[in-house]
Amino acid sequence: MNALSLSEVTVDLGPRRILERINLVVTPGSFTCLLGPSGCGKTTLLRAIAGFTPLSSGDIRLGERSITELPPEKRHTAMVFQSYALWPHMNVGDNLAYPLKLRGIPKDERTQRVATMLERLALGGFEHRSVTQLSGGQRQRIALGRALIIDPPLLLLDEPLSNLDASIRRSLRGELRQLQKSLGLTTVMVTHDQEEALQMADQIVLMREGHIVQVAPPASLYQQPADLEAARFLGVDNTVACSPQDPSALAGAKTLGFRTREARVDVAPSVNALVRRGQVTECVYTGDGYQIGVTANDQTLFATARTPVEAGRFVTLQVPESALIPFGPDHRYMPSLNAQEHTA
């Protein structure tokens, strides 16, 4: 049985079609990330699941039950908003207790469960604080706690970490994932940060302009993006037209993509590698090495080097075959080649 399944979900807001025939299955206890560029409809999809955006057509099921026609309060999903949406006229304790109050849980038990939840969020004793006086990270935790306190069958997170600075974000990623695993919570999280999605998800849903482009586990999404555009979004920042002597040319690939950190300018030549000769135009320090801009055949490619290379020098850029991502004439990933790679 699936925890959540969407079939042919279509959403129009005003005259515009925002989501077009979305099909998606989420297994119980899994962590799904909706990933895509700004404006592609991630928030809209999450809001459709929570019941805030009506469907033009299609069906949403939670377990066996269709929730398409239910109002938000009957769906039992728990959503954490990007702005956290903590109620400023209630203190921390009252914010957490409100969902319990709505469920008619007596006061003593409410107090006790709120205390337990705060303890779990590492915010013990914060009951009487005003939510307006919390830091961003603390607010984020309270918002998460308010959603978790009802033991929801489905947790929906809309960019829960995007308002936080980089270091808190990194540590909260781990904490959030840990909590999700230990509670066995089925979770759908929106993000436009590919690193976040790759680190946290069991399954990534890559979206573009209201469509689903690809649904895959992080590793296969990273190594086999569905098409050129998806690849670019996933950090494949170099593409070259395939020439006859290149490794994948035989299989019919028209374009080869690779990531900057897979391309080297300072290694010994090898067979079965993509090779381009060119002139260095720039050299930028990146922390764990140097990023080298190389102009080859009127095209700028990027590679990495351990030591700086001065501009103007001619170098040979090399990418091992295993790091090349082949695309066919239609700009789509070429799966047949992938099979060859594995047998080779």
Binding site: G51, E73, R75, F81, W87, P99, L102
Partner: peptide
């Protein structure tokens, strides 16, 4: 803030309850 109302609805409050507990304050 509409988000505050939506948060209440999402966590189980009826529209009337949301109005009284969140919108009115």
């Amino acid at each position: 803030d509409r988000n505050l109302e939506e948060a209440a609805r999402n966590l189980g409050a009826t529209p009337l309850r949301t109005f009284v507990d969140v919108t009115l304050p």
